[in-house]
Simulated scan of single mutants.
Amino acid sequence: MNKFIREHVRFTNGHDPTKDITIRFGKELMLRHIIGGGYWWNSDGQIVSLGASSRHWISSNLEDFYVVLMGGSRTLEDNDYQLQKIKEGVCAVFSYKMSSSTANPYLVGKARNQNGEMMIDCYEISDINTSMQTIRTRLISESYPLSQLNTETVIDMHITDSQGYQIINVCKFGSYWFISEHLALFNHYSEELSAFFNRS
């Protein structure tokens, strides 16, 4: 990071470089959160994210955008752990490697080790808590070897409620954006969930 700190110092007045660099890095961190699909509270107290037109512009100008606004040649790290290795206990959205459907369906699953092979236990999306921004899921009788699946995105689904449902925190790891954009491809989802994302 020394290279980038020196670059920032060149554009300060030199009176309080530590404060200036901290503010600059903080702004970059917020920008990374926003363009990575993160959510924030707006002035009206609503949870919002980057609009579709902005996402399209960024994807169309990706290389220049990062060079000019995101610190030159730095490589974007996987700060949201989206690409972490699937091991026992990791929860994610998966798709089938061999699907006869033109629209490859998605499933919510949790990894477990079975005799040295990683298996994915499937969960059905049940309902939502709009105030808490969480989705409840329940375990169903389907399981697949990880070797038959593609990992689409890692999700936070580690809390179990009093009724035995697993809770997805849709505001973490960009899950809200991913699920809302691909809801129709999920094998199991409720009409309530569809209405919630369509309204949002």
Rank of each mutant, 00 (worst) to 15 (best):
T130M: 10
H33Q: 14
F65D: 03
A52I: 11
G45W: 09
F196L: 10
T75K: 08
N150Y: 13
H15E: 15
F186C: 02
K85P: 02
Q148W: 11
R138A: 05
S162I: 13
H56Q: 07
F4H: 15
L107K: 01
E124H: 05
N187P: 01
H188T: 07
A52Q: 12
I125N: 01
R10H: 08
D127A: 10
Y165E: 08
I120F: 11
Y66C: 02
C91L: 04
S162Q: 08
G72A: 12
Q163C: 10
I125T: 00
N2I: 02
T22R: 13
G45A: 01
C122S: 11
K3A: 11
S175I: 02
M118F: 12
I86H: 03
K85T: 06
Q46W: 04
T22M: 12
Q82S: 14
A111L: 02
F178Y: 15
N2Y: 05
S126Q: 13
N198P: 00
N79W: 05
L83R: 12
S73H: 11
E88Q: 15
L185D: 03
F173V: 03
K19R: 14
S141D: 10
Y176F: 14
Q82R: 08
S131E: 14
T151N: 09
F173G: 00
S54V: 08
S101N: 13
F197C: 02
A195H: 06
D156I: 06
S143L: 04
S73C: 15
V90Y: 01
S194C: 11
M119V: 15
M132D: 11
L31K: 02
S141L: 06
S200R: 14
G26C: 12
Y66P: 00
L107I: 14
N198Y: 06
T153S: 14
A92M: 03
L62C: 07
M70T: 04
R55Y: 13
D161K: 06
N79Y: 07
M30E: 07
S131Q: 13
G72I: 08
T102H: 13
T12P: 03
G51N: 15
H56C: 00
L185N: 04
S53D: 15
F4L: 13
G174I: 03
Y96P: 00
V154P: 02
N61K: 10
I120Q: 01
F178R: 00
A52W: 00
S141T: 03
H8G: 01
H188V: 03
T22K: 11
C91P: 02
H182Y: 05
